[in-house]
Nucleic acid binder design. Structure first.
Length: 463
RNA sequence: GGCGCUGUAGCAAAGUGGUAAUGCAGUGGACUGCAACUCCGCCAUCGUCGGUUCGAUUCCGACCAGCGCCUCCA
């Protein structure tokens, strides 16, 4: 049983072989906490959570780290904008992030490093880069330009290996003015000076703060090691973020590779358009969770392959919800069973093939249908397999009764009212007063409640 | 200009050199007092044009149409 993953570095699917099967390491870039995260931020979290689950099935010890960037100019700007302490902002939004991630059924990573708690490690790395001739401190005549430490891109011959970019062939500075203190247009900031009213830490280059790319490199080294098995993130991070991470880590660690496998998820669009501030079409996870169960969002994300682009729409969400309803309907009618993952099953094989979650999900239906057709012990066996598959996908984790009946924002009837009406209908049915019974059912339907009669009695669910 | 991606049924989405999984929606039927649930069935020739091949949606080429990155970004 081998796991194949698409490696962005080689641009092909490769058999995954960890350096140490006793300690598999993976890192995914987490959020910068200055706002609620949007659905696009949720995709890598869900996708790589699923990878984490698969890896845990294959290896006894998987160390998964996902960082929190809690120092960044965007956060500083927000702080100034709201006249709130930066810590208040980062605390609020990191907590909101964890809540969102929990709603999406993501497992808690083994390590959740915060950038601000790794300043010494970052300073060490900058110093190492300076010592090795890969970084330089600016010494501009312009006072405000002093105190920067930049990575010297020309000092690294194979810079651009991940993004396959040759910076000399890019339109350097075409869209952004190149800062005058750079020796080379592609050089990037490792350490930047802070003014008195900006957060900062003392360093050999004066009081300042780390550049964004540096954080990940330093935290990876500390928590996972100089070279890790898998580094993951969104496609847009390939350049410059991941390219620069490679440059920093590789040059600071005497040429050692930062990661053997690089994995990147595709984008989520909204109604065919990229999410952007100018279009005002961000879909915040927090807002979506007011309308949809977290599992619906997770289902939608897993219903297409992680590397392809995905288009988000109301129709997609509603259809996903209906689908999950039918699966929950199946569980609802059966006794709970112990989940058993079937490693030889088609679903797990699909997951081992570069995380083919759409195929794995289709197996969920195949099993569901088989359960509905089977009886007795056989039914139990298939149900166990279905539950095992659901677990690795992080789906069907709720109590089915609750799934159908839990209160929602737009409810017109309480659960108690529903029960009373069902009783009334039951009474009418026994008296063969079907007109009355249908009238009650219509009343419930108008209130957003659908009934399902069965031998065991009447079940209800919110539509 | 550099690097790269996509185009499969109303919607969503896999996949393969030998005539296309799956879900939603739709539809015919069974079940049901009527429904709902469930079950059985139906519903596509894979952007266009060429080439390679016994045979291509799947390989190659051209074209058309979308799109991403090259600046912060999942």
């Amino acid at each position: 049983m081998e796991l194949k993953l698409y490696n962005s570095l080689t641009r092909q699917k490769q058999v995954f072989e960890p350096m140490d099967p006793q300690r598999v390491t993976m890192y995914a870039c987490g959020p910068t906490v200055y706002n609620y995260v949007h659905i696009g931020n949720a995709r890598p979290a869900v996708v790589f959570d699923t990878l984490y689950r698969v890896l845990k099935c294959l290896y006894s010890n998987v160390v998964y780290a996902r960082n929190i960037t809690d120092i960044d100019d965007k956060i500083i700007n927000k702080s100034n904008e709201l006249s709130q302490d930066i810590n208040v902002i980062t605390k609020k939004y990191s907590e909101a992030y964890f809540e969102d991630m929990q709603a999406l059924n993501t497992l808690t990573p083994d390590k959740i490093p915060y950038a601000t708690q790794h300043i010494p490690e970052m300073i060490d790395m900058v110093q190492a880069l300076i010592d090795r001739g890969h970084a330089y401190e600016t010494d501009s005549e312009n006072l405000s330009d002093r105190g920067h430490v930049l990575f010297s891109v020309p000092s690294m011959p194979n810079y651009g290996q991940l993004s396959k970019r040759n910076l000399d062939e890019q339109e350097a500075g075409a869209r952004v003015e190149v800062a005058g203190y750079k020796q080379y247009a592609g050089d990037f900031v490792l350490w930047k000076p802070s003014t008195d009213n900006e957060p900062g830490w003392d360093s050999p280059w004066g009081r300042g703060r780390p550049g964004w790319h540096l954080e990940c490199s330093a935290m990876i080294k500390k928590h996972l090691g100089e070279t890790i098995d898998i580094h993951a993130g969104g496609q847009d991070l390939i350049f410059p973020h991941h390219e620069n991470e490679i440059a920093q880590s590789c040059c600071a660690n005497d040429g050692k590779a930062l990661a053997n496998f690089w994995m990147h998820n595709g984008f989520i669009n909204i109604n065919g358009e990229k999410m952007s501030k100018s279009l005002g079409n961000f879909r915040l996870v927090n807002d979506l969770l007011q309308q949809y169960p977290g599992e619906v969002l997770r289902y939608v994300i897993l219903s297409s392959h992680y590397r392809s682009e995905q288009n988000f729409s109301k129709e997609l969400l509603d259809s996903a919800w209906r689908t999950l309803d039918s699966l929950y309907g199946l569980i609802r009618g059966l006794e709970p069973v112990e989940a058993v993952l079937e490693p030889s099953g088609a679903a797990f094989k699909a997951l081992l093939d570069d995380l083919n979650t759409p195929v794995a999900i289709s197996e969920l239906y195949r099993l569901a249908k088989a359960v509905n057709q089977a009886k007795g012990d056989e039914q139990q066996d298939i149900m166990r397999e279905l539950a095992g598959l659901a677990d690795i996908l992080g789906l069907l984790q709720q109590d089915p009764e609750q799934w159908f009946t839990q209160a929602r924002a737009d409810d017109q009837l309480t659960a108690e009212q529903v029960e009373v009406l069902i009783q009334a209908r039951q009474q009418a049915k026994q008296e063969k007063d079907f007109a009355k019974a249908d009238q009650v059912r219509q009343q419930l339907l108008d209130g957003g409640v659908i009934l399902e009669d069965s031998r065991e009695g009447t079940k209800w669910r919110r539509s």
